[in-house]
Design a protein around this nucleic acid. Structure first.
Lengths: 332, 332
DNA sequence: CATCGAAACGTTTGCGCAATCGTTTTTTCT
DNA sequence: AGAAAAAACGATTGCGCAAACGTTTCGATG
């Protein structure tokens, strides 16, 4: 592997001249600049970013720690973050915690060893140890999606607004018995959406019996079971609200298994838009989370914090969009 | 930031003892081991992986250069690669070329500067410069999805088999006029699938007129237009084969815009399975690519190659799965 | 034509670590 | 008891780089 001193020797100049030419950190005469550049080209020199980072104690890297990268919602966020970071000359370490708090802590520590400039974290269900570590290490960090700790910058969807949009839509269509299929246990989003649901229904003068609120669901299979349970009630709901994309898949499965038609027999709506939702039946009425903006804002905030560790914390709640399609009809 | 010599000083031992304790690279007496470990804990020492990598000239990182991470197909592959690498103690730099060859080259060079141990690349439409660079730099690399260069290890779907499965299915259902909506121009997969389609049809004694083969399509909008064109033919196809997930969305859009029913008015099938395909209408008959296995194999191969740069190249074609659902019916 | 200052470049250090080379202490064997 | 071998650890170097510090050269000025 060629080094800066190999270039210096070949060009007959000092290492500092080469360094300064490459980094444009001080004036060097045009002839020497050309000489150095030609030599770099000739011997195929590629700077060693490790040595550079060691010296500068800054790596130009950030860690992206996601609780489940297979989830399309996170894919969109990852995509936006990568794009934004790339634009700023940063490069991203991608890690998947699989929602395991132990793994999460390990990954955070690992990234710290690698001296990332900062971390964007979608916290697991029990992120306390990781978060404490990040604070302790004074490592710049912004939380996305599941906002649970005011010691950090945070970016996510305004879940209260999202649920309210859905409930308003339901109310407009005269639904009074609405079942909600909740997401994973422990997640801030799950709790937020449940509470927002209760609150929004109450605001509209509708009582929510406990049996219309499912248990939390770890996966689509759980969500299917939960949906079946709601549909078996003596007085079943006229509409089902799936609180994320996984639960929606699960709910649709249950509905299909029972041979129910949407929206004729039951209305369905939920959170997390799908790209194909316009072209397949039932055409789902969904909340589209602003993934792009979440990703961009998260990267922005992180870069700000890296630049100034003592700036005040920010929590940003972005407004989602309700895409009304056809899966939620008038209540019977 | 604490260093190894700070630990040494605090513990009253030499830096080499600390290093050897941490890396278990030579015998150290149990008392000193405990002393060192306690001190590490006490002062909160975190090894600097940059310095370590600089010394060892190996980083434990790989670059994952994908042409479009927003594509769910690639999401699945990314997920599998991350999982496999994580299992092996490697960490992944994720980059998106956005199918831009210039960007692709830049990213490859950037990763080289960062001294990644190797790269997994989903090549853009015109990857020559990047590939030449990788060869020149002697950087371990495996290609995924678009296999186009025998100088590298490669892993992808057996597209010939995939198309043959679809064509066999079509033939069984007596389709003779089948239109194909092709993917992006320049991609190896696009060419492979087109040729395989021609070959498989011919094998079945079916002639394929040129007007049933769409132009290549850069995005869903293009695919929609192409589908409209096929459907406007004086003798339109009885079935549409969408050669990937993007073109499928585009094709379904066109079909919906014309008010056609699937499969009653037209049959549809294609490549790239969707998680929700079982629960929405029309239930698409699709080829499921073995994304998991592709990701795992790619990581495997890369690790092998990193271990031994002179081992023979391998090209692995993995068999996909046909999921027969209901979108492809009997020909009229 | 000395002097001074700026222009242009070179020498060297230290970032944090692994590991080579070396030293000291203890044990073993005759 | 003395020598040799083994056990346990320490001093130092070099990985490749940025930049602080130092040196040389040369033109301008009084």
């Amino acid at each position: 592997m060629t080094t800066i001193s190999a270039v210096a020797k070949a060009a007959g100049v000092s290492v500092s001249t080469v360094s300064h030419v490459l980094n444009k950190t001080r004036y060097v005469s045009p002839e020497k600049v050309k000489l150095v550049m030609d030599t770099v080209e000739a011997i195929g020199y590629i700077p060693n970013a490790l040595a550079r980072s060691l010296k500068l104690s800054s790596t130009g890297t950030i860690g992206l720690v996601i609780s489940a990268i297979s989830n399309p919602y996170f894919s969109d966020i990852i995509c936006a973050i990568e794009a934004e970071c790339s634009k700023r000359g940063l490069i991203v370490f991608l890690c998947d915690t699989q929602d395991d708090p132990d793994r999460e802590l390990e990954l955070v520590q690992h990234l710290h060893q690698r001296r990332v400039d900062g971390i964007i974290l979608a916290p697991s269900g029990d992120p306390k140890r990781s978060l404490d570590y990040l604070i302790e290490a004074d490592l710049p960090c912004v939380l996305v999606d599941r906002l649970s700790d005011s010691r950090f910058d945070q970016v996510g969807t305004d879940n209260v607004a999202a649920i309210r949009m859905l409930v308003d839509h339901l109310v407009t269509l005269h639904h009074k018995r609405v079942g909600i299929i909740l997401g994973q246990p422990g997640f801030a989003t799950t709790v937020e959406r449940m509470n927002a649901f209760r609150a929004a229904m109450t605001e509209n003068g509708i009582e929510v019996p406990d049996d219309l609120i499912s248990d939390s669901n770890n996966n689509t299979a759980d969500a299917t079971a939960s949906t079946h349970r709601l549909l078996e009630l003596t007085e079943p709901p006229t509409a089902i609200l799936a609180s994320n994309n996984l639960t929606m898949i699960g709910a649709m499965r249950a509905i299909r298994e029972r041979g129910l038609r949407v929206p004729e027999d039951i209305s369905v709506l939920g959170i997390d838009d799908f790209e194909w939702a316009d072209y397949f039946e039932p055409r789902l009425t969904l909340i589209a989370q602003p993934c792009d903006e979440i990703g961009r804002k998260a990267a922005d905030l992180l870069i700000e914090r890296i630049g100034n560790k003592r700036r005040p914390r920010e929590t940003i709640r972005l407004l989602p969009l309700l895409r009304v399609r056809e899966s939620c009809g008038e209540a019977a």
